[in-house]
Design a protein around this nucleic acid. Structure first.
Length: 475
DNA sequence: CCTGGAGTTGTCCTA
DNA sequence: TTAGGACAACTCCAG
């Protein structure tokens, strides 16, 4: 009897290591690795994500000895037919948790079963399934810390699999050699030079980032992660999003390194951040509307400004606030932005400019290589104050104060806003309030080579506070 | 039920 | 210069 053909449907698990669906597929028969690009999905990948996906697929294909099959179109339609055509007995995948994908996948399971093909789905992307870790009354946590404490003490994270998969004997791919190019994921204009310098999509690149973090960032993570020029952060977010490394593997590696180097406290903080990612998936699973609607309904009455001009200036990094502009340009050039700066540019858009958080979420979605529906939506709702956690609404970041505190020497600003490089460490945080003479010496001409501040921080802060207050007054 | 403590990530003013 | 309280008062969660 010939060996069974088992389709391994890769989605956001573009790796061979610690991949439960793949491990099960290998046990069951001969693996046919497949990826399907479905452009009709809600929140289809933005330009930066597509760039990443192209390279990640190429890397995966290489580690599969060129045997990754590729399709383009509606997975719900294509997959059952493809499975039939190849006489597959099973189709395995790791779960995705976006609402539309949950619906699509459960329908697909039904279709496959009717065709007498056995489907199987696994957890390859999360430390915990989102339906785990409920409160005693069976409802989900809405606040991070109680969720964190409960999950850590009741369900210690399971260790990753360390089975190494090399030279996998998979079904030979008979598709054209340029099938990945023909997905059309790369943009026509070559805007991605900076991205190539910053990133190496794929499993190998992910491991390198992890090791680099363990060696260079971990010892100082707790405090250093707040300083955008320090790069004490892991830079793992896009790798985690595309599943090039599992969160379990990252957590275990960092914890073990922490024990060896007595950096337990630092390691714990890193794992805590990974669990924030868990909490975002958990929240999206239990509250699927949060990617388009305010969790707190009173925010539906918020007087958002429909200000195309300010939105564009924010997007292009031309607000006149150097830290904001540095962050927005980092995003544009590298597909990434340091976490603290994300909070600050987010607060600025939503509170100082009073532009709807969804506008920010959409822009991030298109620009970020780590664009992730759960993380992006939850984080924007948190910044806006419309999310489930009860952060006091009067928390408004001051981009100048934050800049002085977290980029005291202006090195992050100088990197991404080079026209200000000649200003002193003191002056660089707020050129609009610097004396004409000093600006001139540094070659800065406000309104010509660097914009004047587009809003008054004090005024706009008061305006935002009043707007938030009016929501409370009406109940 | 009721109660009290806590809540990722702040800012500003005053003493 | 720095530390501490006000902001305004909500919701969540555990006991």
């Amino acid at each position: 009897m010939p060996e069974q053909t088992v389709i391994m449907w890769f989605r956001q698990d573009l790796r061979l290591g610690d991949n439960p669906a793949l491990l099960t597929a290998i046990e069951k028969g001969r693996v046919l690795p497949l990826f399907i690009l479905d452009e009709g999905e809600d929140w289809a990948p933005g330009a930066a994500s597509r760039w990443w996906l192209h390279h990640s697929l190429s890397a995966l294909n290489e580690s599969l000895q060129g045997n990754l099959w590729v399709l383009k179109g509606d997975a719900g339609q294509l997959l059952p037919q493809f499975a039939k055509d190849h006489g597959a007995s099973h189709v395995f995948w790791n779960r995705c948790y976006e609402p539309s994908r949950i619906a699509r996948d459960s329908l697909l399971k039904q279709t496959l079963k009717e065709a007498e093909i056995t489907p199987g789905s696994y957890n390859g992307s999360l430390i915990w399934e989102p339906w785990e870790n409920l409160k005693k009354d069976g409802t989900p946590y809405k606040v991070f810390t109680p969720f964190y404490k409960y999950a850590i003490s009741n369900n210690p994270p399971a260790p990753p699999s360390h089975i190494s998969i090399q030279n996998l004997d998979s079904v030979e791919c008979s598709q054209d050699a340029d099938r990945i190019e023909r997905l059309g994921l790369l943009p026509k204009i070559n805007w991605y030079e900076e991205m190539t310098a910053t990133w190496q999509p794929g499993e190998t690149g992910a491991r390198q980032k992890l090791e680099h973090f363990i060696e260079n960032g971990l010892y100082d993570y707790r405090k250093g992660r707040d300083f955008p020029s320090k790069r004490s952060v892991s830079m793992l977010s896009p790798h985690l999003h595309f599943g090039e490394i599992s969160p379990r593997e990252a957590a275990q590696a960092v914890k073990q390194a922490g024990e060896i180097d007595t950096n337990e406290e630092q390691a714990e903080h890193f794992v805590r951040e990974l669990i924030w990612r868990e909490f975002s998936y958990y929240s999206l699973y239990h509250f699927p509307h949060l990617c388009q609607e305010n969790i707190k309904a009173q925010f539906n009455r918020f007087p958002w400004a429909a200000d195309e001009t300010n939105l564009l200036l924010w997007q292009k990094g031309q607000t006149g606030f150097p830290l904001i502009d540095a962050g927005m340009r980092e995003l544009w050039q590298t597909g990434y932005m340091h976490n603290r700066v994300r909070m600050i540019v987010g607060s600025f858009l939503v509170k100082n400019l009073m532009i709807h958080w969804l506008e920010g979420a959409r822009w991030f979605w298109d620009c970020l290589v780590d664009a992730d529906l759960a993380n992006n939506s939850c984080s924007w709702q948190w910044v806006a104050g419309s999310g489930a956690d009860a952060a006091p609404y009067f928390r408004i970041f001051n981009p100048v104060t934050q800049s002085q505190r977290f980029d005291p020497e202006g090195s992050y600003i100088r990197k991404y806003v080079p026209e200000l490089a000649g200003l002193s460490n003191k002056a660089i945080h707020d050129p609009s309030s610097v004396a004409q003479e000093e600006l001139q010496q540094a070659g800065v001409i406000l309104g010509e080579n660097y914009p004047r501040a587009i809003v008054d921080l004090k005024e706009s802060r008061v305006r935002a506070l009043d707007a938030y207050k009016s929501l409370a007054d009406q109940g």
